[in-house]
Nucleic acid binder design. Structure first.
Length: 267
DNA sequence: TCATTAACCGTCG
DNA sequence: CGACGGTTAATGA
């Protein structure tokens, strides 16, 4: 897994269009006009990074904000024993490490592409300027950070839940909330995940992830088709995750659509 | 490369 | 002791 050399994409009309299109769907600049976004895009750079390469590494100084325009990225910690602790999975129009980009401190995790990917880099200077120019982006940043904090809380809770079943169940619920699409009677996690991915997310070995998930499949709780997981019996997953003890609304029961913004009235 | 199974083994309640 | 989960190895797709 080598380093992501600067596969910088030369500025062009198409590159510019893709950048604008991606930024328009990025919540940080929600509320800005197309012209304003285009102006921002003109100061960003577009990068193409092959599958299984690092976008950045934990501890590196943040150069700016990475926004995914294509492909998928996993955020994770590299552990001494070679295992990986996945902090989260990201899909297009999501940012990679907003907090590092905002405060300019080192990245809190390593980002690795899962597919050939394309990302926009919003330079840090520009990011700071945005806050002054467009106050709404500050509000948006707070909302996005709220979400990240919640995610982090969930991660902590997963680690605290005692057994492997609970951690895997909780990871599945979280993924279902993030990528789940109701389809017929089942909830499909629209994100290809290997058993290793699930294991790394849950803090167990692949074999354990397989052990637990095979069991779930045999009981008709889950189904997997070419690395796409479908949850058939949400109740059972919730039970295995012992959600009663968990204060998070991994409310996969509530209609999940888009992530509801953090509705803080005033801070 | 990924998924699966099984035997084995140490830890812990 | 027995459940749990990591380790190792083997196998198939």
């Amino acid at each position: 897994m080598s380093r992501a050399s600067g596969s910088f994409i030369e500025p062009s009309a198409q590159a510019q269009d893709r950048t604008v299109a991606a930024l328009q769907r990025f919540p940080l600049v929600a509320g800005l006009t197309r012209e304003e976004i285009a102006e921002i895009a003109a100061q960003c750079s577009l990068h193409r990074i092959p599958a299984h390469k690092r976008v950045f590494e934990e501890g590196e100084r943040s150069k700016g904000l990475w926004v995914i325009t294509a492909g998928r990225v996993r955020l994770h910690h590299l552990m001494a024993d070679g295992r990986q602790h996945v902090v989260g999975f990201r899909a297009p129009t999501a940012a990679l490490d907003l907090s590092s980009a905002l405060d300019g401190r080192p990245y809190t995790a390593t980002a690795t592409t899962m597919d050939d990917a394309e990302l926009v880099l919003v330079p840090r200077g520009l990011l700071q300027e945005l806050g002054k120019l467009y106050p709404v982006t500050v509000r948006n940043a707070i909302d996005l950070l709220c979400l990240e904090v919640r995610q982090r809380d969930i991660t902590t809770a997963i680690a605290a839940l005692k057994d492997a079943r609970g951690r895997i169940g909780c990871a599945l619920l979280q993924l279902a909330r993030q990528f789940g699409r109701k389809q017929g009677g089942v909830l499909r996690i629209d994100y290809r995940l290997t058993r290793q991915d699930i294991a790394d997310r849950s803090g167990v070995t692949v074999e354990t992830a397989i052990r637990v998930m095979s069991d779930m499949q045999q009981r008709g709780v889950l189904r997997t088709e070419s690395q796409v997981i479908e949850i058939l019996e949400m109740e059972h997953v919730r039970d295995s995750a012992s959600c009663e003890d968990c204060q998070f609304e991994c409310s996969v029961f509530a209609p999940l659509l888009a992530e509801p913004p953090c509705e803080a009235e005033a801070i």
